[in-house]
């Protein structure tokens, strides 16, 4: 169970690419976001959870993609120019059929070390793996 180093640099271009051909979105249109009172374009929550899923998939593989769970809360907005890094802390390990059910806190923190997305997750660590 090796967790990767995962840091993503955020740009408006990447946000727009993630959104696809969508015009009316505060994740792709800074002016619309300002008119909604959120001060400019913000990264879509699904984009941030995707980073955490990449982090967990790299660590657990099929133990996450088949039976894994994540519940995330977006506590601070992420904007173009920010970078986010994934971190984790294991909170429980429970023996189950086929291995160990691992529960953990995972989060993204920005370049200032502030948590921007916090989540609880669980995955299966198969028997015989580290």
């Amino acid at each position: 169970m090796d967790f990767p180093e995962l840091t993503k640099d955020i740009t408006l271009e990447k946000m727009q690419r993630f959104m696809g051909p969508v015009k009316n979105s505060i994740h792709a249109d800074p002016e619309l976001a300002k008119s909604w009172g959120v001060g400019g374009a913000v990264v879509q929550g699904g984009h941030l959870v995707a980073f955490l899923n990449e982090y967990l998939l790299a660590a657990f593989g099929r133990g996450y993609s088949r039976g894994g769970e994540i519940s995330a809360t977006f506590v601070q907005v992420v904007r173009p120019g920010d970078s986010v890094t994934a971190r984790h802390a294991i909170t429980a390990e429970t023996p189950v059929e086929g291995g160990t059910r691992v529960e953990l806190d995972v989060w993204l923190e920005n370049q200032r070390g502030e948590k921007v997305t916090i989540a609880r997750a669980s995955a299966l660590r198969a028997r015989g793996t580290a």
């Binding site: 009172g37 929550g45 699904g46 959870v49 088949r66």
Partner: peptide, 11 residues
């Protein structure tokens, strides 16, 4: 106007 506050998945 709205923003996503929470997201959960069960795979």
């Amino acid at each position: 106007p709205s923003m996503r506050a929470k997201q959960a998945y069960e795979f």
